[in-house]
Design a protein around this nucleic acid. Structure first.
Lengths: 119, 119
DNA sequence: AGCTTATACAAGCAGATACTAATATATTTT
DNA sequence: AAAATATATTAGTATCTGCTTGTATAAGCT
């Protein structure tokens, strides 16, 4: 856990090299980190990409075949993506279909753009 | 390591629930994952935010005061961000100034936008 | 009802990760 | 040159993570 020092604006006595930085929004941080850590893993990233590629939603059974881990691992990974708000899931018969959210679309698009333009 | 099954287009014999997904670009995946895993950590995320907030670049000494970890940890975190291409660094005297890259700006902006619009 | 299939959940564990402490290097100051 | 400051590097370690295996639940099939 990161215990940030609450640096308020009036702290100017410090004679360091540059300006003391203001605080960052810790709610925002928690939200962002949930997204980043959920996406930041081989298996989950690949599952997310595959989910995003298939327009009609993908079921676990197909994803399972695609990535090289057990059914259980895929299920856990998808749960994590769901909790993070990166996919929605709907049940249809005995299958469960996963679909990307707008959040996923936006993030993947940004990543795609970044790879395109080597600034 | 995820060992993906190379699902080529002509694989249609499988009688599963939905369409077999095509493969994903593994170079793209590696690139994206480097960004995501670099940002996806309390300390590094906060350092990155602080770096992004300060326009003229921040030096390690100030960042060190802001997050609640040792000087060594800050140095390691910044190195990781640098390797991932999220910050640039320049030396000025005995200090080292870190600045965000375009990549950082783009990603943080997307994250900010996502928090703004609760779709 | 029993069997099979699709998915989830729980426990345990190997490997990854992120820290601390100690030390090294580089720059400035005295 | 010695001391102090700023940052990096190395080694060791506790915690976290993501997997596997085994089991549970739920839906379809015979």
């Amino acid at each position: 856990m990161v215990e940030s020092t609450i640096t308020d604006e009036t702290a100017e006595g410090t004679d360091t090299c540059c300006t003391p930085p203001g605080d960052i929004d810790s709610d925002a941080m928690a939200t962002d980190l949930q997204l980043l850590t959920a996406m930041g893993n081989d298996t989950r990233y690949e599952l997310l990409r595959r989910t995003a590629n298939a327009d009609d939603g993908v079921c676990v059974c197909d994803l399972e075949a695609a990535v090289g881990v057990s059914q259980s691992a895929v299920s856990q990974a998808l749960s994590r993506l769901y909790t993070a708000g990166l996919v929605t899931r709907r049940k249809e018969g005995s299958w469960r279909y996963y679909e990307p959210t707008e959040t996923t679309a936006a993030l993947l698009e940004t990543l795609d753009d970044l790879r395109g333009t080597h600034e």
